[in-house]
Nucleic acid binder design. Structure first.
Lengths: 248, 248
DNA sequence: CGACGTATTGACTCGGCTCAAAACCTGTGG
DNA sequence: CCACAGGTTTTGAGCCGAGTCAATACGTCG
């Protein structure tokens, strides 16, 4: 399984890592420094829970490397994967805007490096520093749009189309053909992320391979005709191919 | 069909209506006044389009009465209902945080009263007035949570459970039994809102009636055993019954 | 090489969709 | 007050996509 690259030495330096985030970039130096001091790099092994739904939101996290699964669990033990996030994403930050409790759980699905930051400081920074509030607005709104897509996708696209859509988002339109992709995490996780069972994923991927010119070898996927793939996928979607935003 | 009450005379007074909104409540008087002057009450007939996906976001709206459907359309003409909103909700406001273009369409599904407000002024108010930015953050975050639920619901609950969930949200836990509900809009719209076809809605509602003690007469629904209903519904959900937030 | 986790395949079931017809409203005009 | 036209909702029959359960294949790591 292809894991994301380990963080470089630079990124392991907290102030540098924070400066790469829009949230901290425009923040008053006073707050940024306090953040740098009160934060801590954590290296998490596969399976580690960062927090669970309904936990009080004491910390939030900036991911430096590795994939993290965001999920909720039902009373009778079923799990819905809300999102998969990695490198450069923040998680758990939005809890401070709600009731100070996480509204979903987060778990490392492979070795993960994060910076752990105190939630109450973020709350303070947002309420006192206008730039920070604006940065937060930007991030939330990107999130909102992403989720709308998700809803659309779940209601309008079938399994093969959702998989195709997932693959398309791994393609950059300027790449030369054929495009060689490596699936970012386990197929069973992609399946869960796309709201289907892994058996269905397996069959639907095969169907997609037959109907658009795809080649699949383990976790390597070769796209030889972008047009064909996007035609197949995007007909059941409100956005045409180079549908920006995203990762994951 | 039960439509929401018409706006009272008070609410038709723009400054008063704005003051009832968290977004405007804490806003600097300077901005609030400009808003009041540059806004306009509109009475829209059933079917009127407020805006379409990809339209430049010139205006945003505050709903005073009636139901508005938020939707996206795919290339091949299918429609996904993202949300249904009414009375007290703002729509189209988040476009200014994105690329100044609406990421979904909005249409009145019955006679609707709205206040139309200029987007560029909101943009300015947010960037210059901290309180406004905070109010906006609150509203976006509520929205985010709502949508997460939506995703969970679509992936984990079957048709009958989604309908039950919809009904539960119309119940207030302190109401005396039996609870008499009026469906807020057409069944076919509820179906679309819940991501299913109306035939499926009809059958699934019948199934729900048989399995929990519900009575249905046209658009009137009587819930005689809340426990039973919430047991049936919430087992496949990560939140137990009095799941606050919402309307619609 | 053997063992474990992950992925695929097969056979079967079931929920939700489609298409088409009937039933039910609701409002209109005679 | 009734008859009719339009829309909405319900019902029926048949189909298809996705889920389930169980068995097999594949890959990787010890």
């Amino acid at each position: 399984m292809a894991s994301t690259a380990s963080p470089s030495r630079e990124e392991l330096h907290i102030p540098t890592a924070l400066d790469n985030q829009p949230l901290f970039r425009g923040m008053k130096a006073e707050f940024r420094d306090t953040f740098a001091q009160s934060s801590q790099i954590q290296i998490l092994s596969k399976g580690t829970i960062l927090f669970l739904q309904d936990d009080p939101a004491e910390w939030f996290y900036l991911i430096l490397s590795g994939w993290v699964k965001l999920f909720t669990e039902t009373m009778d033990g079923d799990e819905a994967v809300i999102d998969m996030v990695s490198n450069g994403h923040m998680i758990g930050d939005s809890a401070i805007l709600e009731d100070g409790v996480h509204s979903f759980g987060a778990a490392a699905v492979e070795p993960v490096t994060v910076i752990r930051l105190p939630s109450n400081l973020l709350k303070q920074a947002i309420s006192e520093d206008h730039q920070t509030a604006l940065a937060m607005l930007g991030s939330l709104s990107r999130h909102r749009k992403r989720q709308s897509r998700e809803i659309e996708s779940l209601t309008l696209q079938n399994a093969s189309q959702r998989i195709g859509c997932f693959l398309l988002r791994l393609c950059h339109p300027e790449q030369a053909m054929p495009i060689e992709l490596t699936l970012p995490y386990d197929k069973s996780l992609i399946a869960a992320r796309l709201g289907m069972k892994s058996e269905t994923f397996s069959r639907a991927l095969n169907k997609l391979r037959k109907e658009t010119s795809l080649a699949i070898k383990g976790s390597m996927v070769t796209v030889s005709d972008l047009e064909e793939l996007s035609g197949y996928v995007c007909s059941a979607c409100s956005n045409e191919f180079p549908c920006k935003d995203l990762h994951g």
